[in-house]
Amino acid sequence: MKRLTRTTEDRKLAGVCGGLGEYFNIDPTLVRIIAAILFIPFSALVAILYIAAIFLVPNDTEADQA
């Protein structure tokens, strides 16, 4: 079963975009570009969702242990 995790391999800030890229099997750079584009008109919402994902989505190393 595939789980959403924050990556430790392709990490820029907290690994959220890298983890989303791995989960959806797309390039994490594309996820980062989409997030940056969405940040312009929806800055507060994107920032809140990103920060929430940092605390709610486990690292891939933590998910392997569970």
Rank of each mutant, 00 (worst) to 15 (best):
T7A: 03
L30F: 14
F39A: 06
G18N: 02
D27K: 01
S43I: 12
I51E: 11
N59V: 13
F42K: 11
T29A: 14
V16E: 00
R3P: 06
I34E: 08
G21R: 04
I54S: 04
G19I: 02
N59M: 09
G21Y: 02
C17M: 09
L20H: 02
G15W: 01
R32Y: 00
L38Q: 09
A44Y: 10
E9Q: 12
R3M: 06
L38G: 09
I33V: 14
I26L: 03
A36M: 08
F55A: 04
T7W: 05
F24P: 12
L38F: 11
I26A: 00
C17P: 02
I26E: 04
P41W: 02
G19N: 03
R32P: 03
I40Y: 03
S43H: 10
R32I: 09
A44M: 14
R6V: 02
R3C: 12
F24W: 07
A36G: 06
T29I: 14
V31C: 03
E62K: 05
T8N: 10
N59E: 07
F42G: 15
L13F: 13
P58R: 00
I34P: 05
I54N: 04
F42N: 14
P58Q: 01
I54G: 07
L20Y: 01
Y23C: 01
I26T: 13
T61N: 10
M1K: 15
C17I: 06
L30Q: 07
F42A: 15
F24T: 06
D64E: 15
P28H: 08
N25M: 12
Q65I: 09
V31N: 03
I37C: 08
L45T: 12
I40P: 00
I34A: 11
I51K: 04
I33G: 07
M1Q: 09
A53P: 09
D27C: 07
I34V: 15
D27T: 06
G15Y: 00
S43E: 13
T29W: 14
A53V: 01
P41C: 02
I48A: 09
G18I: 00
K12G: 05
F42E: 10
L4V: 04
I48K: 10
G15Q: 03
I51S: 11
N25Q: 13
A66D: 11
A35Q: 15
D10C: 07
D60P: 06
K12Q: 11
A14Q: 13
S43P: 04
G21L: 02
Q65E: 10
C17R: 06
S43Y: 08
K12V: 13
A36T: 13
P28A: 07
K2W: 09
I51R: 06
M1V: 05
A52S: 08
A36W: 11
L38I: 05
